[in-house]
Computed example of a mutant assay.
Amino acid sequence: MSTWKLTAYAPKPVVQAALLAQDEIDDWDFDLVVTGREVAEDRPHDWALEGYYPARPGAVQKKAMAGLFAGEAPKITVEKLPDEDWVTLSQQGTPPIRAGLFRVHTPDFPPTEDAINFAIPASQAFGTGQHRTTAGCLEMLGAMKASGMRARAIADIGTGTGLLGFAAMALWPHAKVTASDIDPVCAGVIADNAALNGIAIGSGMREMTMVIAPGMDDPLLQLRGPYDLLIANILAGPLVELAPDFAEAVSPGGSVLLAGLLAGEQEARVRRAYRRAGFRLAARIERGGWAILWFRRRRGR
């Protein structure tokens, strides 16, 4: 299937404001996937707003992108991406990343002895460690472990490549880990990545169970709870909506690790939702304008 990309360049605050505006639109066409990024590491204030669409964008899609900007919108360019998988192409030749205790690399690079290594090839699912939110979650998982936190049941919601679930398994090897994603393609991706990294797929300790489901809407996800640790690196809107479900799924004193939200207004909305759901903030880090939040569920709720 062809994929087209719409791009608009603007300063970081302008792009972040556009992402916040899209988050507030209830009838947004979610075939138009919008994301923001730095243009380059040495230009942290120059950002791009990118929209990906499965067909040639027309006036409707261009108007939707332009409407996210307050005032006059910057120029929006449109390009057809190669018929090859654009995610794969974007990740080929990417160097390894180091995030706390972890090192994530494509199979083109060998493992090292000074880190917990995961080989994640370019694939159709997100979560290779290159994005600041994924790397930040890896850092926070290491901090959780260092704090003495214990986990016997772990859920990774919106798992993508399975990387964060794999990392949690490495830190808490006796835990039962359940990974889920709304995208059916992730089942095959995770099976391949698990085999590549020597991780067993199954239902016992030291094994990962995979389900395809939106949010917590799966009987197996509910049966394998309550969870001592629930990870969700998704988007701010779904995180807010899922706060009550996560509260029901996490044991008293248990933890949720949330990412995929911009520091600022999105973070404030997520914090309010989780306070109302009975959580308290345990720790926070920020990477490239993205907030990574560790909450603990209050006992007695």
Rank of each mutant, 00 (worst) to 15 (best):
A17V: 00
L19T: 02
L19C: 03
E24D: 05
W28T: 05
E41R: 15
D42S: 04
R43N: 08
P44N: 06
D46Y: 02
E50N: 15
Y52H: 01
R56F: 00
K62Y: 08
E79V: 15
D83I: 08
E84M: 12
L89N: 07
Q91Y: 15
R98H: 12
V104C: 08
D108V: 15
P111G: 05
I116P: 07
F118Y: 13
A122Y: 13
S123P: 00
S123E: 00
G127A: 13
G127C: 12
G129K: 06
H131W: 10
R132C: 05
L138P: 03
M140N: 09
L141P: 04
S147F: 10
M149F: 13
R150H: 13
A151L: 05
R152M: 07
A153V: 06
A153D: 03
L163A: 08
M169Q: 08
A179R: 02
S180R: 02
I190W: 04
A191P: 10
A191L: 14
A194K: 12
I201S: 14
I201A: 14
T209Y: 15
M210E: 01
P214E: 12
G215P: 00
M216R: 07
M216G: 01
D217M: 10
L221W: 06
Q222Y: 02
R224D: 12
G225F: 09
D228I: 08
N233F: 11
L242T: 04
F246C: 13
P252M: 08
G253L: 09
G254R: 06
L258W: 11
A263M: 06
G264T: 06
G264S: 04
E267Y: 08
A268N: 08
R269I: 03
A277V: 12
A282K: 11
A291Y: 00
F295T: 05
R299F: 04
G300M: 02
